[in-house]
Write a protein that binds this DNA or RNA. Sequence first.
DNA 1: TTCTTGACTTGGACGAAGTCCATCGTAGGA
DNA 2: TCCTACGATGGACTTCGTCCAAGTCAAGAA
Lengths: 136, 136
Amino acid sequence: MSDLLGRLRGRGWRMTSQRRVVAEVLDGDHVHLTADEVHLRAAARLPEISRATVYNTLGELVALGEVLEVSTVGRAKRYDPNARNPHQHLVCSGCGTVRDVHPVGNAIGDLPEEERFGFAVGSVEMTYRGLCPACA
Amino acid sequence: MSDLLGRLRGRGWRMTSQRRVVAEVLDGDHVHLTADEVHLRAAARLPEISRATVYNTLGELVALGEVLEVSTVGRAKRYDPNARNPHQHLVCSGCGTVRDVHPVGNAIGDLPEEERFGFAVGSVEMTYRGLCPACA
DNA sequence: TTCTTGACTTGGACGAAGTCCATCGTAGGA
DNA sequence: TCCTACGATGGACTTCGTCCAAGTCAAGAA
Ligand SMILES: [Mn+2]
Ligand SMILES: [Mn+2]
Ligand SMILES: [Zn+2]
Ligand SMILES: [Zn+2]
C-alpha cells in the first residue's frame, strides 16, 4: 500500500495532505474501515480534514480499483485496501470482525450452465459467517 | 408462500389486512423487493397502509426466518421470501436484476483450516455478478 | 352479539449514511 | 514568483430506516 502514493502520482493525481493521510490510514492487512472510521483516524493526524473529502477520496480510490467496497447488512459500507489480492471475507456474527480469506476451488465453475440464465458471469463474492474465538 | 399466513396464525399473529397484503406481495419466484417497492405494491391494494407497518412486518418476517434480507452495495436492502430453499444470487451488473441460483460443490469446505482463524464457520453467502442478456 | 383490551397501525419526527454544491485554497507547472 | 485548474470545505439536502405517542381494531370473553 505504501506504493499507492506513487501509483496515484503516476495517474496525474495532485498530491495533497488530505489524500496522503487517507492513503496512510488505509495501510495494513485485514483493514476494512467504514468511511467514518477513516475520517476519525485521518482527523487524528489532520484535524481539519472534512467528511466530504474522505468520501471523495474513497470514491476515487474505488473507481481506480485501488480500494474495494465491501457491502454489509444494513450497516455502513467498508473500504478494503487489499484490492490487488483477490480474496473473500470471513465475518464474525458476534462482533463484526472481518478477515481476508482465500477459498480453494472454482466457485464460478460451480454455477451450473442451466442456472446462468444467459448471463455472462464474471465474478463471485463470498462471505463466510461464524463466531470468532472471542465471541464463541 | 400462500401457506405463510397459516404459519403466522399458528405463531399467534393477529391477522390484519396490512399483514395479509404484505404477505401477498411477497409471493412468487425470484422476488427480491426493497421495502419501498413492497410498500408501493401493498398500497396499490390497500392505499392507507403506512411505511412504518411495512418495515415492522418485514422485520418480523425476517426475525421468524420466513423472509431473508439480501444486502446490496450501497442501495436499499432487498427482501427475499424464498427462505425455505437455501440458495445464492446472480445479479446483473447493468440493471440489478436478481435471480436465485444453486451452485454445486461445498463452498464451506473450500475454506482451508488455516484460514478459519479459530472461527466456527456456519454459513456462506455467494453473489455471482455478470451482465444479463438484455444488458449485454 | 357486544364488550374489552392489548396488540397493531399510523404519520411524523428523528437519525445515520451518503451526495451535492458554491466557494475558497493550494499544488505544481510556466 | 505567479496563475489557475484541481481539490478541499462545510452545510444543505437526499435516501433509507427507526422510534414514538396516539388512535384503531382482531379476536377472545361473556
Ligand atoms: Mn478484505
Ligand atoms: Mn433469493
Ligand atoms: Zn467476534
Ligand atoms: Zn441486466
